[in-house]
């Protein structure tokens, strides 16, 4: 299938390239999934008392595992471009910087969703959750949380493209910014598993959506300046 729109064509080409590189190396997917599972296993042994009590810890453990392991993907986002100076070839092309931002964010979202697809069944088993009370809203908060996390993370990853201690700096400056989103996701997930008020859950979802939109717009706006538009 040929994509006519040049902006969309370039965005998809960059996403496809990132996806192919990851499928060949599998360094991000394997590492982040393994790390996420490890976090859940450790917390399960730390917090497990019996079904009802330990389920209260589930939302926090689940989102902490996503945020910590997702950071691995964010750290690698521009590292591949920097290693062989490919970022120079990307910037010296007729590609709008926002297309680079969208493709990188998209790649991070897909990798994080794959990791989450492996993580959810493990959390369900380890925390002895019989069935999901509201699968549609759970999926909605999962998607919105992942999109916001990746939109902000890709932006910060670009900001630190040439920083020497980016593995230390990224969590330091990135986690405080996504704290509101993280709290929203934890609260929404808790309400969903506790069979809480639907209106309240919808309010959390709206907050997550607003956070996502704010940072996607901000990302599209400032990305070019962060990676050296000149």
């Amino acid at each position: 299938m040929t994509v006519k729109n040049p902006y969309l064509r370039v965005t998809l080409a960059m996403f496809h390239k990132d996806f192919m590189v990851e499928m060949r190396s599998r360094e991000v997917l394997l590492t982040m999934t393994f790390f996420a599972i490890l976090v859940v296993v450790v917390f399960t042994f730390a917090f497990y008392v019996h079904g009802d009590v330990s389920r209260q810890y589930l939302p926090g453990v689940f989102w902490v595992a996503i945020i910590f392991s997702g950071t691995i993907s964010l750290l690698r986002t521009f590292e591949r471009e920097r290693e062989n100076d490919c970022i120079r070839a990307l910037l010296l092309s007729p590609t709008p910087p926002s297309a680079i931002y969208i493709s990188k964010t998209l790649a991070n979202i897909v990798f994080t969703l794959v990791m989450e697809a492996c993580l959810v069944p493990i959390v369900v088993v380890f925390f002895n959750v019989g069935s999901l009370p509201d699968p549609a809203r759970f999926l909605a908060i999962l998607f919105l949380g992942t999109i916001g996390f990746c939109a902000v993370g890709t932006l910060f990853s670009a900001m630190l493209i040439n920083a020497r201690m980016k593995a230390v700096l990224l969590p330091l400056i990135f986690y405080p910014v996504i704290a509101p989103l993280l709290i929203t996701c934890v609260k929404a997930t808790f309400s969903i598993f506790a069979g809480g008020d639907v209106d309240q859950i919808n309010r959390w979802l709206t907050m997550a959506l607003a956070f996502d939109m704010l940072f996607i717009v901000l990302g599209l706006w400032v990305f070019g300046h962060l990676v050296g538009e000149g």
């Binding site: 370039v10 080409a13 960059m14 070839a89 990307l90």
Partner: peptide
Amino acid sequence: HQPFLYPELTAVENLQFFRELYG
């Protein structure tokens, strides 16, 4: 000196990518 290429991709995949990028 650095050729700005992706080591995990083949030569033809690298050039296909840059052809798309450069339109």
